[in-house]
Design a protein around this nucleic acid. Sequence first.
DNA 1: ACACGATATGTCACCGCTAACATGCGCGCC
DNA 2: GGCGCGCATGTTAGCGGTGACATATCGTGT
Lengths: 342, 342
Amino acid sequence: MQTRKSRASFTGRVTMADVAKEVGVSAITVSRAFRAPGKVSPELHSRIVEVSRRLGYVPSRAASALASARSMTILALIPSLTNNVFVDVLVGIKEVLDAADYQMLIAITGYDQPDAEERMLRAHLGYVPDGILLTGVDQSEAVRTMIDGQGLPTVHMMDHSDREDLWWVGYSNAEAGRAVARYLLGRGRRRIGIIASQLDPRSLRRCEGCREVLAEAGLYDPGLDLRVPDHSSIPLGAELVERLLNQAPDCDAVFVCNDDLAQGAVFQCSQRGVAVPDRLAVVGFHDLNASAWASTPLTTVRTPRYQIGREATRLLLARIEGTPTSARRIDLGFSLVRRASG
Amino acid sequence: MQTRKSRASFTGRVTMADVAKEVGVSAITVSRAFRAPGKVSPELHSRIVEVSRRLGYVPSRAASALASARSMTILALIPSLTNNVFVDVLVGIKEVLDAADYQMLIAITGYDQPDAEERMLRAHLGYVPDGILLTGVDQSEAVRTMIDGQGLPTVHMMDHSDREDLWWVGYSNAEAGRAVARYLLGRGRRRIGIIASQLDPRSLRRCEGCREVLAEAGLYDPGLDLRVPDHSSIPLGAELVERLLNQAPDCDAVFVCNDDLAQGAVFQCSQRGVAVPDRLAVVGFHDLNASAWASTPLTTVRTPRYQIGREATRLLLARIEGTPTSARRIDLGFSLVRRASG
DNA sequence: ACACGATATGTCACCGCTAACATGCGCGCC
DNA sequence: GGCGCGCATGTTAGCGGTGACATATCGTGT
């Protein structure tokens, strides 16, 4: 008892019991005052609020999660923050969570190690999230097992899947790749290249969509298909377009699977004196903020990242709370934004 | 009892007790096997690890935090993710935390409401973090009280303070502003403007540093000092430089307090036919990735954001664990990067 | 006047884990 | 051969909340 007392005072935290004693009620009444104000008389409620504020009481989520098996926290697994793409998604997620009084836990998995997603998940599952938002639909078996084992609801984001058991909000990367290929073909381009980096499943699906349409038209040339595993960045885009133009000088268009790469590619073309789009049309992907504001504004595919964050979170919260939803798979589509580069 | 049982099985989680029963030991042994492997016999340890894996056991951080008053979690309060500035800081933080087996909780405070930091802090304190990383050194009284009340160690990032009681890792925004002013004066500029947005304390300190030096030189003109509260962005930078040039056509240089604004400013100048730097020199701040890769690469101040994240986290962990540190205030400085725009 | 339901508050046990303090056991040593 | 000691493991009592159920209080209809 005495030991405990000192341990508690060591942490220095004000607890619900402290508030209860000060007000002269039992702890459960304080608990109710916060979670169900209607069940506590108005005078008591205001006194409890006042005392809590005065004492600096902050409810312990750890204790609450333990006792109620609800943490009011959702976990978002994101490949990277460096890539602005996911920042937009997070903004959408956060808005919906804030409104519902949930907290967001962000886990960054990175693109490099194949088991990173599993490790990050294991580390963060300890926080007992009430649900999980996943990026993409290509989780490893280990990840699926772990999530199912915990019985946690999940929603996938940023891609498209035919699987009946998945809840997702996104768009079809494959279809987007096809759309770009058709667009470039429609504009009379015949020697169309593909540049991609990072090679996550979504980028690859875009590449494949593009390749598919080019192949159908008999115009796919593996010599114009440049895919490297490095992280995508502006300088890498510059380097890759340089390489492409050197090995295939007659290339007249290129689908660059990420806008930062595409920005670098356009930059490099202007350095090198390659006219964009006349000599080489460049189409990017994602429509990042900066893409409209380059000396040659980028033709690109706009993805509804903010909306994906919002809708995926709405769906997840509905699942958690058992509210019926109109759909469990939401395709928010994409749109090709035509600007100067292609 | 029965009720409880069903509640537990409702959550479906595998607990330490489940593992213990399966192995045939008591829960505390399982606990020790994870936290202090040396205190458990090798055979038992490997059996416990094996069974845990097989059952899919994930320790509950909530329970652990409650029982041990240590959460192995640190909280980072960041104004915004949209601004790439802090993403770099987070990458640094995360690297150090990963190595030390700590988890990172990110709270995004936003720039808009003055009490947002307080509210976000309150919401996240419930996770019982072991320490806090704060952005800037200008926290409100309420925030300080709350943190002190919990007895939590903190380290401030991204600014500089003379206060003896603060631990911080950063650079002097005021000094950086002065350096820019001196640089532009040294290059013969006389009608020097200032453009800033967002108006967080750090931007303002940069502005003030710049103004100070200009005033000393007798060259400060409030008519060239444009500060707006809106979020910083490329289009806003374009708009502001337009406004500046309209109201003061003889302006020959401008310190733009954020690189994204500066990128927009340079873009707008090229649209408008204003020669950069001949007619108008533009100096940005932060040296974002894209700034080197514009048609007119940006002269800007490079801030060591990644290192700030790393060092601040090292310092915080040392404080938490009681390791002695060589310094409690680390000025990592900044450097003016000269490129084409100024 | 009294049973009855609605409302306000309390009691108790327990969520999953760990600090502190046992306990049991084998070993070396005088 | 008894003693003390170190090591491996167990017992107990919480950490700070909340669910389920109990109890007290009050107004209402008959």
